[in-house]
Amino acid sequence: MTDLLTKPAATAPASAAQRPSSDRRLVGIGFMLTAVSFFAFLDTSAKFLGTIEHIPVVEIIWVRFLMNAVLIVVMLRPRGVMRAAPSKRPGQQILRSALLLATTAFNFAALQFLQLDQTSTIYFLAPFFVAALAGPLLGEWVGWHRLAAICVGFTGIIFVTKPGFGGIHWAVALALGSVFCHSLYSLWTRYLARFDAPRTTLVYTPLAGAVIMAPVALWNWQMPPNALAWGILLSMGLLGGMGHWFLILAHDRAPAPVIAPFTYINLLLVTCLGYLVFGDVPDIWTLVGAAIIVASGIYLLFRERAASASAPASSSTVDG
């Protein structure tokens, strides 16, 4: 923890050639878009298994991480896993894996009570958490323009949760917990990209979920009722594994504040999937809240791009 909270040792100012190029950032954005597409189908699968097939959430979580681990072994083969396993920051890798487990547990639990579009809109607060936390944790500070955008973005959650109109559903707290853990997970991913290769980070990704959830899931095990449920349950490892592989690659190629806003494609996907699979239609409050959050996030992106083009290479603060 102290490694992450402490700034890296002082080094010479980075030259323009050392900063991420535009091409690398575009590739990182493409990887992020691919990752969130996988995550949209992952969330839909989790909600379907929990609310339609009535499979325990702890079982869904464990199989998702277990199959993710199996997929990694198949992709890299046992020898490749052994070569990739050594890490320069093993403790931080385990902590990152635990953050992913917490993110998934909160999210899958929230999905049992909230619509897909609601949980995804709340999830869009992640770029604001990332932008706010990137300074103290990674040294990627934001200026007052971005701080204003973060404050505006957080007002969008008021429309989604509708306080004063029948009360806030308690499951919103689960969704917010997932967002916070995911934001820390994203920053840890960015941090570890400085020390470990993407394959090393990939190997550690499902570790906490596969190990910690095993006894709980086996104690509450319930056989899936049909072949469709089995297929969806087993495919969740592929969806999650590929999603996080592309997420790792995205963070390896672009700063967190650049790629985070492109998670917004997720809203379009989950809204369509929510309607097709569950018949859910987003209400006007959710749409207004999503519009506020997305607009603020896009503003964050443009401010970062403008600042990157004009700021001196030696600056450690993103001018706002």
Rank of each mutant, 00 (worst) to 15 (best):
F262Q: 09
L273D: 10
L174N: 09
A149Q: 04
R253Q: 14
Q18M: 14
L239G: 05
I293R: 06
V142E: 09
G164M: 05
G164K: 02
D117S: 15
L33I: 14
I248P: 01
D3W: 00
H251G: 11
T51G: 02
L202C: 00
G209L: 04
A227R: 08
W245L: 15
L71Y: 01
S296Q: 07
V81W: 07
V179E: 05
G28C: 06
L176Y: 07
T104V: 15
S296R: 01
T2S: 10
W188M: 15
S314L: 03
D43I: 00
V211L: 14
A193D: 12
T2I: 15
P13R: 07
F39Y: 12
P257I: 04
A98E: 00
M67C: 14
M223K: 06
A109R: 10
F195I: 03
P257V: 04
C181A: 15
V258W: 00
P90I: 08
I52R: 08
A260L: 05
S296W: 03
L176R: 08
H244T: 03
P86Y: 11
L301A: 07
T44I: 06
F129H: 11
L137H: 04
P13C: 11
P8E: 09
G237E: 03
R303N: 13
V130C: 04
I55Q: 03
T200R: 11
R305M: 13
P86E: 10
Q118L: 07
M75E: 02
S186L: 15
I52N: 01
G209H: 03
H244I: 07
F124L: 14
I259L: 01
L26S: 10
G231A: 09
A229Q: 06
A214L: 15
L100G: 13
W230D: 00
K162P: 09
A131T: 12
W144E: 04
G320C: 07
